[in-house]
């Protein structure tokens, strides 16, 4: 067996490249010059060209359309199932401690103050039928907005919410009613129960908010006892509730069980004229809380008007 001449060995990569359309012009010229004088390489070149033609034919051979379409339909069905189960999450370091934020296809599904066990103690991992992945870019804007909110640079979190994490339709209804309580306002469990048309369900409302999967964005910190006590928040973290309310301009009175300072807040009790009052208007400050506002602006932003009896616009509370 004779070995290939050195020149033929050296030019082989260029020859293959030229025959399969990948050579640079100088390489192609070198190959041209060589095959003009070397019969063996000319034959090689023709064989590689034939292979290249066969590859071209393979490239343009269509896959049976039915196979691809059937596969695509099956994929779409499996993707729909995955999308309904998958949530991405990230842990956001905040002034209130680490908060786990999780998002599903429908929206933000969970905000959770993490305890000592971190993510491993999160309720996310205990949720059935959920596939949790540590997320990235898709949560960045939410993280930024949350930090802006907790830093006092933003007063609204207009996020799409996934309320499927609610335990019942009733809890979902309580959460929706709570979302309607605006920044700088406070309502009570009694007020929410009345709003839902179930005035006797005060304890059930409190229970539903005790398990609120979306604190901050579903602002259960704005819901207090009917006398103004900051009862319960994220377990024993009444301090967080106090912090969030103070940030919104709602004053609180320190005590073993802190309470909001009603005499420093404008009062509203459902009435046909949608009038809001000073705390000194009649016995309003002694009745169960319907809705309170930190400032007149907060009240009037909700479409309320000053009471024609106590005239809060003429005798505003000290700022």
């Amino acid at each position: 067996m004779t070995s290939k001449p050195t020149m033929c060995v050296a030019i082989e990569p260029d020859l293959i490249a030229a025959a399969t359309g990948e050579a640079t012009p100088p390489a192609a010229e070198r190959v041209d010059a060589h095959v003009a004088t070397c019969a063996a390489c000319r034959d090689d070149f023709a064989r590689y060209r034939a292979i290249d033609h066969a590859i071209g034919a393979l490239r343009s051979t269509p896959t049976p359309a039915g196979d691809a379409e059937a596969a695509r339909q099956r994929l779409i069905a499996r993707l729909a199932d995955l999308k309904s189960r998958i949530v991405s999450y990230r842990v956001v370091p905040t002034p209130l401690g680490p908060i786990l934020m999780a998002r599903s296809e429908q929206g933000i599904a969970l905000l959770e103050y993490l305890g000592r066990d971190g993510v491993s103690g999160s309720r996310l991992l205990q949720m059935a039928d959920v596939e949790a992945h540590e997320g990235g870019a898709e949560l960045e804007s939410f993280e930024r907005e949350l930090l802006d909110y907790l830093g006092g640079r933003r007063t609204r979190l207009d996020w799409p919410l996934d309320l499927r994490t609610a335990r019942s339709d009733f809890q979902r209804a309580v959460m929706e009613a709570t979302v309607a309580v605006p920044y700088g306002a406070v309502s009570s469990y009694t007020g929410i129960a009345a709003h839902l048309g179930k005035p006797a369900a005060v304890r059930a409302v409190a229970q539903a908010l005790r398990h609120n999967p979306l604190p901050i964005v579903v602002p259960c910190h704005r819901i207090v006892g009917s006398g103004g006590d900051l009862v319960g928040y994220a377990g024993p973290r009444v301090d967080l509730k106090e912090h969030l309310l103070t940030m919104e301009g709602v004053p609180t009175t320190p005590a073993r069980m802190p309470r909001i300072t009603r005499r420093s807040l404008y009062h509203y009790e459902t009435n046909p004229g949608r009038e809001y009052c000073l705390p000194t208007c009649g016995d309003i400050a002694r009745r169960p809380i319907d809705m309170l506002f930190a400032t007149r602006e907060h009240a009037e932003a909700q479409g309320l008007v000053p009471c024609t009896f106590c005239h809060p616009e003429l005798h505003p509370l000290p700022a």
Partner: peptide, 20 residues
């Protein structure tokens, strides 16, 4: 190919959020 292409896209979906 059907199974493998499904696997490919389901994996891609899971990693989609981390793609720059």
């Amino acid at each position: 190919a059907d199974d493998l292409s499904q696997e490919t896209f389901l994996r891609a979906y899971r990693a989609w959020g981390r793609l720059t």
